[in-house]
Amino acid sequence: MIGFVFLAVIALAAIGIYAAMFKRNLIKIVVGINIIASAANLFLVSLGYREGGIAPIFTGAESLNMVLATPQALTLTSIVINLAVTALMLSFAIMIYRHYGSLDALKRRLKE
């Protein structure tokens, strides 16, 4: 069933939001954001699907019925951006561990 992909997207996004909202370990929050990013990428790629289409490569193509290529470009951009953001967040988590001694989100000093 075609619509199954979108159910998977919603499930992944829900898992990611749950991890970001309820987990106390900073690394788990970063993993949660990564899961939301995977959901967004899956959503983008699945938007371009056409029934019976093949990969959108022109050289040596058997037929001209291809899936859309634009969402694949958008997904690549999104993957690279999320890579940069995840790397930056993880480096911040390392430095927080070095200065505070723990990775707990409840042990914060900036409040009110």
């Binding site: 939001i17 970001a20 909202m21 309820f22 987990k23 106390r24 900073l26 929050i29 989100a105 409840l106 914060r108 000093r109 900036l110 409040k111 009110e112």
Partner: peptide, 10 residues
């Protein structure tokens, strides 16, 4: 304004 990230995401 507790300062916890999880509340902000909520």
């Amino acid at each position: 304004h507790s300062g916890i990230v999880n509340d902000y995401v909520f």
